[in-house]
Deep mutational scan, measured.
Amino acid sequence: NLYFQGLKYMVPGARVTRGLDWKWRDQDGSPQGEGTVTGELHNGWIDVTWDAGGSNSYRMGAEGKFDLKLAP
């Protein structure tokens, strides 16, 4: 699974964008943008601060869902 392989790169400072299971509307800005991981992966959740200004926790394994992917 590509998403599980990418988890080791989901570290503080990593750049991310919305992924396969995104369901959080425009939390990442409008139009959709990139963000920066600000915390360690914990119980399948990870913290992100978006360039647009907001921050929140997103699923990276929790509930079998992956809200994020590494930015290109």
Results as ranks from 00 to 15, higher is better:
Lys65Ala: 13
Glu40Asn: 13
Val37Ser: 01
Gln32Cys: 15
His42Pro: 02
Lys23Glu: 13
Glu63Cys: 15
Arg59Phe: 03
Pro31Asp: 09
Trp45Asp: 00
Gln5Gly: 09
Arg25His: 14
Phe4Pro: 15
Leu20Thr: 13
Glu40Tyr: 13
Leu68Pro: 01
Asp28Asn: 13
Gly54Ala: 08
Gly33Ala: 09
Gly64Phe: 07
Thr36Ile: 08
Gly61Gln: 02
Leu20Val: 13
Thr49Glu: 12
Pro72Trp: 12
Val16Phe: 02
Gly33Ser: 12
Trp45Pro: 00
Arg18Leu: 09
Leu7Met: 13
Ser55Phe: 11
Thr17Ile: 14
Gly13Arg: 03
Pro72Gly: 12
Ala71Tyr: 06
Glu34Ala: 13
Met10Cys: 09
Asn43Gln: 10
Asp28Met: 04
Trp22Lys: 04
Lys69Trp: 12
Leu68Ser: 01
Ala14Ile: 10
Gly44Tyr: 02
Gly54Arg: 07
Leu70Cys: 14
Gln27Tyr: 06
Ala14Gly: 04
Val16Leu: 00
Asp51Gly: 00
Arg15Lys: 09
Ile46Trp: 03
Arg15Asp: 02
Gly13Thr: 03
Arg25Ala: 15
Gly61Thr: 02
Val11Glu: 08
Glu63Met: 09
Lys65Ile: 05
Ala62Asp: 05
Phe4Leu: 13
Trp22Val: 05
Thr38Pro: 00
Leu20Gln: 14
Glu40Lys: 12
Pro72Thr: 12
Arg25Val: 11
Arg18Glu: 01
Leu2Ser: 15
Leu20Asn: 13
Leu41Ile: 12
Gly19Ile: 07
Gly64Pro: 00
Asn56Glu: 08
Thr38Trp: 05
Val11Tyr: 09
Val16Tyr: 02
Leu20Trp: 12
Met10Pro: 04
Lys23Pro: 09
Trp45Lys: 02
Trp24His: 06
Gly13Asp: 01
Asp28Val: 05
Lys8His: 12
Pro72His: 14
Asn43Asp: 12
Tyr58Gly: 01
Arg59Leu: 03
Met60Pro: 01
Pro31His: 07
Arg25Gly: 15
Lys8Glu: 15
Lys8Thr: 08
Gly29Cys: 07
Tyr3Asn: 15
Lys65Phe: 08
Glu63Ala: 09
Asp51Ala: 04
Ala52Ile: 07
Thr49Phe: 08
Met10Arg: 05
Glu63Gln: 12
Asp51Ile: 03
Phe4His: 13
Met60Gly: 02
Leu7Ile: 11
Asn1Leu: 11
Asp47Trp: 13
Pro72Tyr: 13
Asp28Pro: 07
Asn56His: 13
Met60Arg: 00
Lys23Cys: 15
Thr36Leu: 07
Val48Phe: 01
Met10Gln: 03
Gln27Leu: 05
Ala71Leu: 12
Leu41Asn: 06
Val16Gln: 00
Met10Lys: 03
Arg18Thr: 05
Ala14Phe: 03
Asp67Leu: 02
Gly29His: 06
Tyr9Leu: 09
Thr49His: 10
Val16Lys: 00
Ala62Gly: 06
Gln5Phe: 10
Trp22Glu: 05
Glu40Phe: 14
Gly35Met: 03
Gly44Val: 03
Gly19Arg: 07
Lys65Leu: 04
Asp28Trp: 05
Glu63Asn: 10
Gly39Asn: 09
Phe4Asn: 13
Ala62Gln: 05
Gln5Pro: 15
Gly54Asp: 08
Lys69His: 10
Gln27Ile: 05
Arg15Asn: 01
Gly29Thr: 06
Lys23Ala: 11
Met60Ile: 05
Gly29Asp: 08
Ser30Gln: 13
Val11Trp: 08
Thr49Gly: 05
Thr17Tyr: 06
Pro31Thr: 08
Glu40Ile: 13
Pro12Phe: 10
Trp22His: 04
Trp22Asn: 04
Lys69Tyr: 14
Ser57Asn: 09
Arg15Ala: 02
Pro12Arg: 10
Gly64His: 06
Asn1Cys: 15
Arg18Val: 07
Trp50Glu: 00
Asp67Phe: 03
Pro72Lys: 12
Gln32Tyr: 12
Trp45Leu: 05
Ser55Ala: 09
Gly54Tyr: 10
Val48Lys: 00
Gly29Ser: 06
Gly6Ile: 15
Pro72Glu: 12
Gln27His: 07
Asn43Tyr: 10
Leu68Asn: 00
Gly6Val: 14
Met10Leu: 13
Met10Gly: 03
Asp26Trp: 06
Gly6Glu: 15
Phe4Lys: 13
Leu7Thr: 08
Asn1Ser: 10
Lys23Ile: 14
Phe66Pro: 01
Thr49Lys: 13
Asn43Gly: 10
Glu34Trp: 14
Gln27Ala: 08
Trp45Glu: 00
Met60His: 05
Trp45Asn: 00
Trp24Tyr: 11
Gln32Val: 09
Arg25Met: 15
Val11Gly: 08
Val16Ser: 00
Gly64Tyr: 06
Ala71Ser: 12
Ala14Asp: 06
Asp21Glu: 04
Gly19Gln: 05
Thr38Gly: 05
Gly44Arg: 01
Leu20Phe: 12
Gly33Pro: 05
Arg59Asn: 02
Leu20Pro: 14
Tyr58Val: 05
Lys65Asn: 04
Lys69Ala: 14
Tyr3Met: 14
Gly19Thr: 06
Ser57His: 11
Trp22Asp: 05
Lys69Gln: 14
Ser55Met: 13
Arg25Asn: 14
Gln27Thr: 06
Val48Cys: 02
Phe4Gln: 14
Phe4Asp: 15
Gln5Asp: 15
Leu41Arg: 07
Gly33Lys: 07
Asn56Met: 07
Asn56Asp: 09
Val37Gly: 00
Gly6Asn: 14
Leu7Gly: 08
Lys69Ser: 13
Asp51Leu: 04
Gly44Ile: 02
Gln27Val: 06
Leu7Trp: 10
Trp22Arg: 03
Asn56Pro: 03
Gly39Lys: 10
Gln27Cys: 08
Val48Asp: 00
Thr38Gln: 08
Arg15Leu: 02
Gly29Asn: 06
His42Phe: 11
Val11Thr: 11
Pro72Ser: 13
Asn43Pro: 03
Tyr3Asp: 15
Asn1Tyr: 08
Asp21Cys: 06
Gly33Gln: 09
Gly61Trp: 03
Gly53Glu: 01
Leu2Pro: 15
Asn56Lys: 07
Leu41Pro: 08
Gly39Thr: 12
Ile46Ser: 00
Ala14Ser: 09
Gly54Lys: 08
Leu7Phe: 08
Gln27Gly: 08
Ser57Trp: 10
Trp45Ala: 01
Gly44Lys: 01
Ser57Gln: 12
